[in-house]
Computed example of a mutant assay.
Amino acid sequence: MTHAPVRHRNRFGPLLGLAGLWLLGTTATAEDDPGARIAHEGNDRGAIACIQCHGEQGQGQAQPPFPRLAGLPEDYLIEQMHAYRQGQRRNATMAPIARHLADDEIEAVSHYYAGMEPAGGPHRVPAGLLERGRGIALEGLPDRNIQSCASCHGEQGRKQSPALPPLAGQPPRYLMNQLREYAEGSRQTSLAGLMQGIAQALEEEEMAAVSAYFASLPAREE
C-alpha cells in the first residue's frame, strides 16, 4: 500500500506574503512621493536623508538637539530651508543640505513633513524650570512688557498658522538655542522682528525655563 506524500503547509507563507506587500507599498510610497524619497533617501547631489537626524516619524531627537518636523506648517518649513541656504539661519549641518536641494525638492519634502501626524515629546525637564516656564509661557512678564508665548503659539504650544511653528514636543536644547540665536541676531527669518526683542529681554534662566515648558508637552494631544 502506498501513501500519498504528506504536504506540510507553510504556516508563515501568509505572513511573508503580507510582509512582502508591505515592503512593496513602502517602496511605492517613496517612489511615488518625491518628498518621502528625499526624507528617507536624500538625493544624489549630497543631501542626506532627513530621517538620519530627525527620526523615522519626524519626531526629532533630544541629544544632539534635532527639531521635530512632523506636523510643522509647510510654508514655515520651506522658509527655513531657504533661510539655511541663504545664510539667514546658520547651521553647519543644514546649510549644505539646503544648498544641495532644488526648490522643488524643498517644497516636496516640506509638504511631506507638514502632512505627517505631529510626533515628538514630552521630554523630561527639571521640575523647577517647568513651573517657572509655565508662568512665562502663559502669562508673559507684564512688568517688563514681555508678552506671553501662548498669545501666538497657544497654551499647549500646538497652535497652527502658516508662519508660526508649534513648539510642543520640541527638544529643550533646540528651543533654547533658537532663543539665543534670535537674541544674538543670527536668526534672520520672518519672525526675527517679533522674536528678537522678546529673546533679548529674557534672562538665560528664563529662556531655559520657557524652553523646558514647551518641551514637556507632547506634540500631539493625548
Rank of each mutant, 00 (worst) to 15 (best):
E74K: 13
R37K: 15
P165E: 02
G13P: 03
G121A: 10
E204S: 10
R7Q: 14
I48C: 08
Q188F: 04
G120E: 02
S216F: 00
L23R: 09
R7H: 12
Q52G: 14
R68I: 04
G115P: 07
A212H: 00
Q80S: 09
E107H: 12
A70M: 07
L194D: 07
L24M: 14
Q63K: 14
M207A: 14
E139I: 06
T26L: 14
F12L: 15
A19D: 09
R45W: 06
E107R: 15
V6R: 12
P165A: 06
A150V: 07
L167H: 02
G128F: 02
W22C: 15
G58T: 05
C152N: 06
H111Q: 15
Y112P: 03
F66H: 08
Y182T: 02
L15Q: 14
V109H: 01
H100F: 07
P67V: 01
E117G: 09
L15F: 12
I97A: 03
Y113S: 10
A168Y: 00
M81T: 05
A137D: 06
G87Q: 10
A47M: 12
G135N: 13
N177I: 05
I51L: 14
A168T: 06
G55T: 05
Q59D: 13
E31R: 14
A219S: 13
L24P: 08
P122R: 03
L194C: 06
G35S: 09
G185Q: 08
R134L: 11
W22I: 15
T27A: 15
P5T: 11
P34F: 05
G87P: 11
R132C: 03
V125M: 04
A183Y: 01
L130M: 12
Q88R: 14
L69K: 00
A183E: 07
C50H: 01
A92V: 12
Q80L: 12
E74S: 12
G42S: 11
R45Y: 08
K159S: 13
L138A: 09
I106L: 08
G154Q: 04
A137T: 05
H100E: 12
P172W: 01
R158L: 12
Y112R: 02
D143L: 11
P171H: 02
I97D: 00
M94E: 07
P218D: 06
A70H: 01
I51C: 05
R132S: 11
E74W: 01
E203Y: 07
Y76A: 08
V125H: 01
